[in-house]
Amino acid sequence: MLSLTIDGNKVEAEAGWSLLDTARQNGIEIPTLCYHEAVEPFGACRLCVVELRQGNNSRLVASCVYPAEQGLDVYTASEKVNNVRRWILEMLLSECPASSEIREMAAQYGVQTTRFEISDPEQECILCGLCVRACAQVVGANAISTVGRGAQKEIGSPYLTPGDDCVACGTCVTVCPTGAMSARFERVRGVPSVVMARSVKR
């Protein structure tokens, strides 16, 4: 057993647990978007960041991928942490304004509106990659992938060429945190070439 502090309270963790595991085992809530028990953690959305303090130093780490270590001093809702979460959520409001899940989560952090331009009012996909990882790691079908880089990134079939790898199992829909996948599942199921959420929209 490892012992550490989270938000000032002493907690225990088993070796191999992440900070997120440790927090949840101890009833402490940390928001996540790209995390799902069924797949390997990815560390992409950064909503789960927590602050590690050591003397005068402090830094943020993603709790879903950072291992619990003996003696860590962890803060799950400090100003530094919340600043990151608020900005991500406000930017997501403009990126994927159609997602009610994102709107609800943003509201919890006091973010009701976004100052940024909305380019596609119907967009729901946040590009967390959960669908891709579930399809690869749980189903083993590898029918979908992220294509493109940076701001051009989207979800599509590998190399954007139609393939017939989708077995229409719906796992991607189950893991999708925003409903982006379910709204388009009919299209996915009917067509063997999986051309999905974000690329269909764009």
Binding site: G43, A44, C45, W87, M91, G148, R149, A151
Partner: peptide, 18 residues
């Protein structure tokens, strides 16, 4: 950097363009 961001994590993918 906006061009070169891999787009994996949200603060960089969304924040640098803003």
């Amino acid at each position: 950097l906006e061009e070169e961001s891999c787009g994996k994590c949200f603060p960089c993918r969304l924040g640098v363009p803003r």
